[in-house]
């Protein structure tokens, strides 16, 4: 069995973001980087599938500068067998159709039985890449899965719908699934596995060899929403609060005259 899991390196979401000078993406100075949360679920599920079937080869793919190799090594330490690093210093500037195009081009002749992706990236959040890859490869896809089972070539996945309803979906491999929060609890890479990961194959492929589609959209502008007059929190004794509220309503609104 051949499995592919696609991951993205994203900034820690607790970072203080600034819009970069060119105005179409965030400034990547002084940020801490980690694996996209949804991709962690994807890696964990891919490793579990490999452990279940035994005879499987699991490739982790990521697009970006050399820096993304750090995150790929984490996936290798979690149990992936080999890494395919698509070297692209301008990965941040690729829109979802291009990203999917690169992945599909890589995966096309390799005969992957299951392709895992996160349901979206935490920084761009388009939610398109996984399903676009499936379309490009003419494969079925199941999005936002919260449960995954595999038996004799059939994937049985649960999807989470609005209002707490779940749907059970059956699909024949080969297929693409995109992973949602709640699917699993990703394992910690252990120290021995971290050291073993150093010896695993991690090949770099120039993005030019795989990018065969054109962008369909461009980001015109990235910005923080304009700050509207923020809320006002009053603190103190109830009686005093009531007096202050009345005076604000009188002074600043037409509710009280």
């Amino acid at each position: 069995m051949k499995i592919l899991v696609c991951i993205k390196q994203v900034p820690d979401m607790e970072s203080k973001f600034k819009v970069a000078a060119e105005g179409t993406w965030y400034d990547n100075q002084d940020l801490a980087w980690r694996m996209n949360e949804y991709d962690e679920y994807a890696v964990e599920q891919a490793v579990r599938l490999k452990e279940q079937v035994g005879d499987a080869d699991l490739t982790v793919l990521s697009i970006g500068s050399d820096k993304v190799k750090e995150t790929m090594k984490k996936a290798l330490a979690m149990g992936c067998d080999r890494g395919a690093h698509i070297a692209d210093d301008a990965a941040w500037n690729k829109e979802p159709f291009q990203v999917a195009g690169i992945i599909a081009e890589y995966a096309r002749d390799k005969g992957f039985d299951v392709i895992f992706t996160g349901m979206q990236s935490q920084d761009r959040g388009s939610g398109q890449v996984g399903v676009l890859v499936a379309e490009m490869l003419e494969l079925p896809s199941v999005s936002t899965i919260v449960d995954f089972g595999y038996e004799a070539g059939t994937i049985i996945a649960k999807r989470e719908l609005e209002g707490g309803i779940k749907a059970k979906v059956k699909v024949q491999a080969p297929a693409v699934v995109t992973c949602q929060l709640g699917l699993n609890t990703p394992r910690y890479p252990t120290l021995p596995n971290i050291m073993k990961a150093k010896k695993k194959e991690l090949l770099s492929i120039p993005v030019a060899e795989l990018l065969k589609v054109n962008a369909r959209m461009e980001t015109a502008n990235m910005f923080f929403p304009e700050k509207k007059g923020g809320g006002l929190v009053l603190e103190g004794e109830a009686g005093e609060l009531a007096d202050r509220l009345i005076s604000i309503l009188k002074d600043k609104t037409t509710v009280l005259k």
Binding site: K69, E70, K74, Y188, P189, T190, L191, I194
Partner: peptide
Amino acid sequence: DEHRMIAETLSRF
């Protein structure tokens, strides 16, 4: 990378 990874594993643990 390996040093940073074990630090992350420790933080989570």
